[in-house]
Write a protein that binds this DNA or RNA. Structure first.
Length: 123
DNA sequence: GTTCTGACA
DNA sequence: TGTCAGCA
């Protein structure tokens, strides 16, 4: 359901074309293409971009956003959710493991002056 | 006029 | 990320 090109999307999301294209490279969105290879964004794409905007504003980098999106998708996917249940992992277990992994790898570029930010993503 | 890819600082 | 080049 392709709606509008990158111009309007830039205004709606307050993101630069550079950022939007970068997020596409990292598969955070998958806008359709016109015959002339122009990107056409769906409502879904714009919704995701707004979420990304929010996280970026809070200091989360690509890796962090990918993790959070993956977590969210897992919650929404019946099959994955079922697999998780089979392993008897609660949502809190998943969050604990994710936080541990991310903290160790230092994949979040949160400012040291504001370390409390991280808790908001996992609490 | 608008968007695209690639590339550099 | 910003920005510039060279196309379409």
């Amino acid at each position: 359901m392709p709606l509008f090109p990158i111009g309007p999307v830039m205004q709606l999301t307050e993101l630069t074309a550079r950022q939007i294209r970068y997020y596409e490279e990292h598969q955070l969105i998958s806008p359709a293409r016109t015959d002339g290879n122009r990107r056409m964004f769906s409502l879904n794409d714009i919704d995701k971009l707004l979420e990304v905007k929010d996280l970026i504003d809070q200091g989360v980098n690509m890796a962090g956003i990918k993790h959070l999106f993956a977590l969210k998708n897992q919650e929404a996917n019946p099959i994955l959710k079922a697999e998780k249940t089979e392993r008897e992992l609660s949502n809190d277990d998943v969050r604990r493991l994710l936080r541990k992994e991310i903290v160790q790898a230092g994949r979040f570029n949160l400012p040291t002056s504001n370390p409390g930010n991280m808790n908001r993503f996992f609490h």
